[in-house]
Design a protein around this nucleic acid. Sequence first.
DNA 1: TCATGTGAAGCAGTTCACAGCG
DNA 2: CGCTGTGAACTGCTTCACATGA
Lengths: 227, 227
Amino acid sequence: MAPRRPSEESRARGPATPCHPLPPAAVHRLSQYLRCFKQLEAQGVRSVSSLQLARSFHLSAAQIRKDLSLLGELGTRGVGYDVSVLVRSLSETLGVDTEHRLLLVGVGNLGSALALSPVFQRPPFRIVALFDRDPAKVGRVVAGVPIEPMTALARSVAEKQIRLGIVTVPSRAAPSVCRLLAAAGIRGILNFAPVVIPPPSGCVIRTVDLGLQLEELTYLLLHAPSS
Amino acid sequence: MAPRRPSEESRARGPATPCHPLPPAAVHRLSQYLRCFKQLEAQGVRSVSSLQLARSFHLSAAQIRKDLSLLGELGTRGVGYDVSVLVRSLSETLGVDTEHRLLLVGVGNLGSALALSPVFQRPPFRIVALFDRDPAKVGRVVAGVPIEPMTALARSVAEKQIRLGIVTVPSRAAPSVCRLLAAAGIRGILNFAPVVIPPPSGCVIRTVDLGLQLEELTYLLLHAPSS
DNA sequence: TCATGTGAAGCAGTTCACAGCG
DNA sequence: CGCTGTGAACTGCTTCACATGA
């Protein structure tokens, strides 16, 4: 079924990333898997079976096999998967085998905290530019990066070739900031303001909404086991 | 279609919370809808049709109608929906018509930022207790709440009747902290540490993982329109 | 023999099209 | 006539069961 050429040179320089239209649900899980594979790698584990993985991840073994088979035949029948192969393959598919430079707009409490987060203290993600509308903040340095005024945004994006952005401005300002980023060439945005933002063309916006997460929890609390 | 078993005890309860087993995907959207309805209400809008809503939310009208019909017949045929009815009904279903007291463990950069977030400055969510392992932080006041030592956790949960928790501790500590919370009686946890945590019985854990969100974005960047 | 990879079955969620009601 | 509410078709994801190959 896999519409891939069974040529022997499987690790050739050519696109081992054959324009995958992976199911979104699978992408999410692959990301989780990658995290766990890296953990196993750090522990010195060389090989795992789908059953072992299932127990660690609290998922089904069939699910894991199907997800991994989407990337090609990564395992060895009768044996299992080689952890380092998994890490390499997943990293490549998800696009995290190269560095990604990010900018962050809105250096308030949340913005500062995110900029200082461990995620950005090692590859592949690195924050290389900070912006804030408040002139009093401009010039201050957070996480080793100086805060610039909004007027410097477009130029920085072009110069530093930034394609990803994080938006931690008040809800009111978020839609216009996202439009601004998209216009400057940003291709993907992680937005922390609790508002629905009209998606600019050519730019994906993913909103992380604390209140929404909490409401889903309260629903479960209300309509789940043991009242 | 909602009442599959017409002769059961479906009308037994007065309140419109008939032990809904709503699809998780629908719960997520209802939460989003509620946000928008509140916004419309604040703007003075009294009535909307599913088509108008679809345009504002960037969703399909059929989806909205189906989701809302899960809660009963909230609309008026030929007219549309009454905004205040929607707000009341959704709030009740999601369980946000009453106050929810939360605790937060791990008052570092991220923890402090979350505690100061606008979400907690008005109902229904309120942070009423902070905890940190670091003795140097104990006693400090953040967002009007004093930081307590971990040893005070179980007692506070019981005394203040807290059922929800936010965990912003380092990944290493997160699993044991979650076990601790569950043992103390916490029923739902929002975890910000990028680790897979074995779900304790009787307690739902929802993990918000920044790195995971970013990886999904990079995948889209890599395998989506206009390279 | 073992665990993978995969068609096929099963299920959930979404979209469609129209019946029903104001 | 307009818009909701909803069975029915449809799509896509998950689970199953087994053939495949080390």
